[in-house]
Structure formats: C-alpha cells, structure tokens
Design a protein around this nucleic acid. Structure first.
Length: 607
RNA sequence: GGCCCCGUGGUGCAGCGGCCUAGCAUACCAGCUUGUCACGCUGGAGAUCGGGGGUUCGAAUCCCCUCGGGGUCGCCA
C-alpha cells in the first residue's frame, strides 16, 4: 500500500520491520493518553498499528497527538520497534511491534462520528445508510466489501480460464410488460417513449448465443421495481451465464465446480457436500414443502392424510374431504415445549400462510407403538384416537420426547406453513450448523402453472424455457404435468441461482406461446427480435443466473444482502445518503415531455 | 396493499399512568495520568421522550392519526 504519502500499510507491519523508518497515514482508530506517553491505534484500509508518541523523543509530534481525536486523518513518520517484553498484543496482527513517532502531521480533522467506527454495535439502519461512508469504514463492513470483490474476482478468473467471454449488455432496453415491474426511463429524443432498465439480461444473452459466442458471462446489474426484503433490493447483481451446445449436465457441472472451488478458496473454513445433492422439484416439495429447502437439518415433512381420513377431529376430516392434506414434522426433543411456546408457534404459523397447527408431544418410555393415552399431550387430545397417534408417530419416525406438529390444509398452504415451521424450529432449537454450506440442485420444475386470477397458464421460469422432450405431447393434454428443463441452485434454504435449457426449435416455441395464450401478433410485438434471430441458425443453448448478492451474503456469513452491498436502499427503495428518489425541476420534466399526475405532485420540500 | 415489531441525550439501552427535577453504559468536553491497547481516575455538559391530536387532576408511559425504520404475506415471468 505504498504511495507518495505513506511507505507501508498499517496492517502490514511485522517484527521483520524492526528498526525500519516508515511513514504511515490513516485514521485515528483509538487514542490512549497517558499524559506524557500517548498511544494511537492508527487504522487504514488494511489494518491497525500502534503508534507511540513520547514527548521526550519528539515533542512536536506529541503535541499533534494531544490535539488529535477519533477519525482524524494523520500522517506519521517514525521507526518500527519491537514492543517492550510483556506489552505485546496477541489480539492484533501487528501486536508484536509499534511505531515510535518522530513527526506527525494532521491531514484532516473529523467531527465526532454519529456512531462508533471502532466498535461492533447495533446501529439504526437509517443512520447507517445516511452515513454509509462511515458505516463502510467499520471493520466488518469493510471486510464484507473486500470479500465481495474477491468473490467477483474469483468468478471472473474461473470463467475466463474456461473460455467464457464477459460481454456487457445495455442498461437501457425495451420494456417487456410481464413478470416484475420495470423501472422506466423516459426518452428526451423520442417524446412519449420509454426505455426500461433490465430485470435481467435474459434475452440479450440468448442473442449472444445466436451470435456465436458459445460461452458468455457477465456480472450484471438488474433492476426490479418490486417490494423489498432482506434478500431483495431494487437493484441487484447477477452472475449471468449462457452456453451453447449443452445440456443440463454441462450447466450443473459448471455451477458445482465454480461454487465448490469458490468456497474452498475463499472460505476454506466452511464445509460443503460433494457432489451437490439433486432433488426433483416434486420430491423437494414433498419432503420439504419448498423448492429451496434448507438441507442443514432434518425434520422432513411426512404425509399422514391416509391415517386420518376417519378422524374424529373435524379439521382433519373436513380438510381431507375437501381435497386437502394432513402433513407433519417431528421436532426432536420438542415435547418439552411449554404451552406458551406452542401458542407462539400457532401465532407464527399464521404469519407464514398457515391457518393453524396441532401439536402432539410424546412422553413416557419405550417404543412409540406402546404409547398410552397418558403418553401424548395435545390441545386436541380428546379428538385423537390412541391408534391414530401411534400410527402418526411411527410414520413420522418420532420417539418419546419429540413433538409432532401437524398441519391440515390445501397442499400449497400446508407446504408453505410446514416449510416455515421447519425453518423456525431449526432456528429455535439451534439445529443449524453455521459452518456448513448445504448446496443442492432442484431440477424438473413444472413448465407452467395455472394462474387462478387470469385463468391461464403462466411460465414458471420464462417463455423460452424448454420442456422435457418426452413431455412435449403433454403440452396439449395436461400442461400442468409438463416438466421443464429448468434448474435452481439452492444453498442453506436460499435460492441462489436459476436457469434452464432454452427452446431453440421454432415449432416448440410456437407451442409454448400458444399454451401461454400469447397470440402470434403479441409474440411478434414483444419478442419479435428474438424470434427473428432464431430464424438465422440458433444453437441449442441454456444458461443460469445467480444472485451474486445472496451468494456473497452466504459466504460472508451475513443474513441480509445490504451487508454486502456498498450503497443499498431502504425498504422503501430510498437512498438516505443522496436523498433519492427526489423531485426534479419542471424544466427537466418538460424536456422529457412528462406531466405529473395530480396525486404525484407532492410537496417540494423533499429535495 | 395486509399483518406484526420498533422510534427516549451523539450512539446503544432502561423506564411502560404520579417515586422522572427522565436513569444506565458509552461517546463528547476539561483536568490528572510514561506502557496502554474497550487504558485509568476526577469533574462537566448534553434528551421533554419521531410528529400531531385526544383521554386524564397528571402521559415518555393509555387511545387515535401521521411520519420514518425493520420483518413478513401478497408481489418478485
């Protein structure tokens, strides 16, 4: 980190520098004033070093150190020396040495920061974003951003070595009114017309395949005007990949190799499964109630519908009669949960889409087949027959001391509720191995799903996703059963990538449009450029896009992508640092040929 | 858009109808301090409790509205 103003980075000094004259420059991390001796922990990008100011050795430097406060920027010239025996600090990388200041220069003073830079404390999100440049100075954030760079660098190298070409695609593209809401950009040159910011480079990367690049990738910024979450930002970054002349195996192999190598290089302390397990969508839904299961723990979902068709408990019986399911999970050692904790779970399940739950705690000794009426405890005890409880316990694989959580609902909601419960219980019972990255592939997604509101089939992935060859005939007879050549990469319960083998045959593409009730004229209007391109020799191709923010978050051990994005937005898509979004002048609007609707003409104080 | 949580000196918390003349820690300011490393000691300054309205003899504490932040469902082809 040598520059004209400094000879070394603070963090790189070691015992081997003993006796060297150095010039450091950085921020005052902490200052300890002993009256005559002053210690300053000087911090720069790559670390912290202790500087000692002794008035008997350097009176002027000591005077500077006396006036300096936290976060002042100073330059120090001095000599590196081993610390006196007994005063070494093993907690610091540079703890064996210190710098004896000979001179010091104040480069820039600092106001007292609005929050601690030198301590790990919770700080209000709004404040952090307003002073993001100070937040990023904090060690953990600084480390996260540097780590993100390493991930990106690793990806670029990895793919480049395998013949991939990074191609940039436009940020101003055509709006395709489907899927997420577009961010629109008005055109000054073309009155009344708008560009959209890309939700992903999807169509462009397919065009690059038609263009014959065969192996494309891009670290691409994507934009979606939808509501935010801890894992969603209005602008986010994808690692976008597309390859020609491949099938699913090529793509999954590449992703597995990439992620394995990345973890082993950048986080060798974390463990992962090799090879990545693969689950068909139907199996994932059946066993985990989710297409992004967290495989770090068990508690798989088990169907007990057939055991309860004759149940005296009307919720079970009625749900089953209405075509629903009764499914459950076994919470190991959960029989000890208090009534209050069970009530909390009942409240919780409502927040994840469920209507309620039935808990059955198993107590006593011996095999569950010998369970007695006194050995199980449930709020609906009197509606449950002993033989039913025994059968459920056996089916779910529960033992004494475990808690059965049973949910009766239509299949979709039951899955959602149990998925939520499973995750919640794992958290509460500390069943999560934080040192493990449980990657898995989910394959064989349905091609289309029925849109109740619109009464039509919608593409699960997108309209260019290829159906499985053997399922093509089903597109006419039973579209819901058609499996797509689509795949997701999942890690620790997060979807981190999704992709598919694309349709490259005109007849199949037309069949797909017809199934989605996209009329030829509409297809021409929306995707004409793609359809035309495909008439000039389209290679079989497929691709994938990973959520880079989520990947970095997982590898960095964070729980929110905002912790790995330098300048993220709040939940209302606002940027408290710049004050975006803001109003603009009437002149700007006029130039863009835009008039605001009355309801949008808010007071102007915001800008 | 629905539901839930939060909003008290700079920061992080406590207080949840009168004992609050709003407490604690830390940061901040001043003085003392030659081996500290979350230095220490002494002293000092600093918030009317996001905003508005209401209930009450009395509100940081209860109610309503509103603003802001967060979580979640919807949404995210």
């Amino acid at each position: 980190m040598r520059t004209s103003l400094k000879s070394h980075g603070c963090g790189e000094l070691r015992a081997e520098h003993d006796g060297q004259e150095v010039t450091l420059a950085g921020w005052v991390h902490r200052r300890r004033d002993h009256g005559s001796l002053i210690f300053i922990d000087l911090r720069d990008h790559d670390g912290i070093a202790q500087v000692v100011f002794n008035p008997k050795e350097a009176e002027e430097a000591h005077r500077v150190a006396s006036d300096v406060r936290n976060e002042y920027v100073i330059q120090v010239k001095g000599r590196v020396a081993r610390r006196p025996p007994g005063t070494e600090n093993r907690n610091m990388a540079t703890g064996e040495i210190e710098v004896h200041a000979q001179s010091a220069t104040l480069l820039s003073p600092s106001k007292t920061p609005p929050f601690y830079i030198n301590e790990e404390t919770e700080v209000d999100d709004l404040l952090r974003l307003h002073y993001r440049y100070l937040d990023l100075r904090r060690e953990r954030m600084h480390r996260n951003i540097v780590f993100r760079h390493k991930v990106v660098q690793f990806i670029r190298n990895f793919l480049s070595e395998r013949g991939f070409v990074e191609v940039e695609t436009p940020i101003l593209i055509k709006s395709t009114p489907e899927g997420a809401r577009d961010y629109l950009v008005p055109s000054r040159v073309n009155p009344g017309r708008f560009y959209a910011l890309p939700q992903s480079p999807q169509q462009l990367k397919q065009l690059l395949m038609v263009a014959g690049f065969e192996r494309y990738f891009q670290i691409a910024r994507c934009f979606r005007d939808e509501d935010l979450r801890a894992d969603r930002q209005p602008e986010f970054t994808q690692l976008d990949i597309e390859m020609s002349f491949i099938d699913e195996e090529d793509m999954l192999k590449l992703m597995e190799d990439l992620h394995t190598a990345m973890v082993e290089t950048l986080r060798p302390d974390l463990r992962l499964t090799k090879p990545f397990p693969r689950l068909a969508y139907a199996e994932a839904m059946r066993r985990f109630g989710s297409d992004k299961p967290d495989l770090r723990y068990g508690m798989e979902l088990v169907d007990v519908s057939d055991l309860l068709a004759e149940s005296e408990f009307s919720v079970f019986r009625d749900t089953l009669a209405a075509g629903g399911v009764v499914r459950g999970i076994c919470v190991p050692g959960g029989a000890g949960l208090s009534r209050r904790q069970i009530d909390e779970l009942t409240e919780f399940v409502k927040t994840v889409g469920g209507k309620g739950l039935v808990s059955i705690g198993l107590t006593g000794e011996g095999p569950v087949e010998k369970l007695t009426a006194d050995d199980f405890h449930s709020p609906v005890h009197r509606y449950l027959r002993l033989e039913e409880v025994r059968a459920i316990a056996v089916r779910i694989g529960a033992g004494r001391g475990d808690l059965l959580i049973i949910v009766a609902d239509q299949e979709g909601r039951a899955s959602q509720a149990l998925d939520g419960l499973r995750r919640e219980m794992a958290r509460r019972l500390n069943l999560i191995d934080e040192g493990f990255l449980a990657f898995c592939f989910i394959t064989d997604f349905p091609l289309v799903e029925w849109n109740e509101a619109e009464e039509r089939w919608d593409a699960v992935h997108h309209p260019f996703t290829s159906p499985k060859e053997e399922d093509v005939p089903l597109m006419d007879s039973d579209p819901g059963r058609v499996r797509a050549r689509a795949y997701d990469l999942v890690c620790n319960g997060w979807e981190i990538a999704g992709g598919s083998i694309r349709i490259h045959r005109r007849d199949v593409q037309e069949k797909m449009f017809s199934l989605l009730r996209i009329a030829p004229a509409e297809a021409q209007e929306r995707f004409g450029h793609m359809l035309e391109a495909f008439e000039y020799g389209a290679p079989p191709h497929g691709g994938i896009a990973t959520g880079l923010d989520r990947t970095v978050m997982l590898l960095a051990g964070e729980r929110d992508i905002r912790e790995v994005i330098a300048f993220p937005k709040t939940k209302t898509a606002a940027d408290p640092l710049f004050g975006a979004p803001s109003t603009v002048s009437e002149a700007q609007l006029k130039e863009l040929h835009i008039a605001l609707r009355p309801e949008a003409s808010i007071s102007k104080e915001s800008s």
